[in-house]
C-alpha cells in the first residue's frame, strides 16, 4: 500500500486500483472542531482536483477535492453521526470515501509523505 498527499491536504492510500481518501492531520488542525461531513454517494464519478466531499467546522465550510479521478465505491457513513472523528483520527478511521482509480498515472502528480511534510513545514 502507498500513501500520497495533495497540496490541498487530502491523502489517498492506494492498493491495486482501489484508493481510500481522507484529509490530513494538518487539515483537521487548521479547520478546528469538525461539526459536519458530507461524503460522496456510491457510483459518483470524480475528477482529479474536483469537488468530492464537504467538511465543516463551527466557523466555515470547506470542500474536499478528490486526489485522483475515479468512481466512488463507498462513502464513510460513520462520519455523518461522528464528524469529530475527523479531528480524532484523520488519517485512519475518518476516511471519507473509497474509489476505483480511473487513471493510476495521476498519482505521479501527488506528493509522498516526506515531500508533503516538507510542504507543510513551508506553510508554517
Amino acid at each position: 500500500m502507498s500513501m500520497y498527499f495533495t497540496k490541498d491536504h487530502e491523502w489517498i492510500k492506494v492498493e491495486g486500483d482501489t484508493g481510500t481518501v481522507g484529509i490530513t492531520e494538518y487539515a483537521q488542525h487548521a479547520l478546528g472542531d469538525i461539526v459536519y461531513v458530507e461524503v460522496p454517494e456510491k457510483g459518483r464519478a470524480l475528477k482529479q482536483g474536483g469537488d468530492a466531499a464537504v467538511v465543516e467546522s463551527v466557523k466555515a465550510a470547506s470542500e474536499v477535492y478528490s486526489p485522483v479521478s475515479g468512481t466512488v465505491i463507498a462513502g464513510n457513513d460513520v462520519l455523518a453521526g461522528q464528524p469529530a472523528l475527523v479531528n480524532e483520527s484523520p488519517e485512519d478511521q475518518a476516511w471519507f470515501f473509497t474509489l476505483t482509480l480511473a487513471n493510476p498515472a495521476e498519482l505521479e502528480a501527488l506528493m509522498d509523505r516526506p515531500a508533503y511534510d516538507e510542504y507543510v513545514a513551508g506553510l508554517e
Binding site: G32, D33, V35, S57, V58, K59
Partner: peptide, 12 residues
C-alpha cells in the same frame, strides 16, 4: 484572536 488552543467548540 479567532480562537485559542481550546478551540471554538470548547470555548463556546
Amino acid at each position: 484572536p479567532v480562537q485559542y488552543p481550546l478551540g471554538v467548540l470548547g470555548e463556546h
